[in-house]
Design a protein around this nucleic acid. Structure first.
Lengths: 141, 141
DNA sequence: TTATAATTAATAACCATTTTCCAATTATAT
DNA sequence: ATATAATTGGAAAATGGTTATTAATTATAA
């Protein structure tokens, strides 16, 4: 799994460091779409000397080489996703978690937009908002 | 056109001021989805003493009484839209303009998501990215 | 008209994210 | 093993949209 990042980093002239691999590994093995700070916190035990600055610099590089995508779900920070495929996200307005939405067909929607807009489209982001199952249980409705 | 805002402001216990009407009028007569600063700049000639703080407070009130919606198209600021209907937006990656997308049917898409997610959905935002017609002409491709 | 509570304007302060800085360290090629 | 150029870490600083503050002003009701 690290092979691809390793090669891609080398190809693009970046050095392969344990920090970079660790940060990518976190993103590649979670579905939580962590922010820079969440990545930083998660690395505290394995890399006690990890710096937030390194996290920021690394996610920027990972985005540049196309290994991750950057999300902005209307929060005050960015989130990072090693799943670079086009897929909608849903954010819980209660606890803030962001989840993937799988097996959704939106090609008709996108096709319709592409047909009707004079823009040359290069991408899109679909964000849904609501209450996650856990928070539904927690709150009295 | 101001009638509705005027009544709604009074109903909710807010005073009706020239500033508030002017800010709403800007939003109601544009399709540019201006940010707070853009509203502020646009009012400089008509209201030279307008304060940015007033713009922020007013859009907050307008949102509270349901006369506008707030957009976050992945920028570092919010944009405001007097068209409170659910509709997708497209942002030009070159010049930054944000446009509406009309006559797009996304109810199947939304229905599919609602059926498949365990979230209780309350809303959504659809953002497309690309190059607007003007910037397509301007850049050599 | 008067009283009063809300609003405005201008600026300062905020504040959390992100970037910069630089000395120490480390990956890489030779 | 060595050279060197990139990277790291830690803290400090910047960033820039947004909010708070306060005296002066103004909308509203009586």
């Amino acid at each position: 799994m690290d092979k691809k990042v390793t090669n891609l980093l080398r190809e693009k002239g970046f050095k392969v460091t344990p920090q970079r691999l660790a940060i990518y590994k976190i993103l590649a093995t979670t579905k939580a779409h962590p922010s820079a700070e969440m990545i930083f916190n998660q690395l505290q035990t394995a890399y006690p000397t990890m710096s937030l600055a390194t996290v920021y610099k690394t996610v920027d590089i990972l985005r540049e080489i196309g290994m991750i995508q950057v999300l902005n779900a209307g929060e005050d920070c960015f989130r990072y996703d090693a799943d670079t495929s086009d897929h909608p996200h849903v954010r819980c307005l209660e606890c803030g978690r962001v989840d993937d939405l799988y097996d959704i067909n939106f090609s008709d929607f996108v096709g319709d937009v592409a047909k009707k807009t004079p823009y040359r489209l290069t991408g899109q982001q679909f964000y849904f908002y609501g209450i996650c199952p856990e928070c539904q249980k927690a709150t009295v409705n």
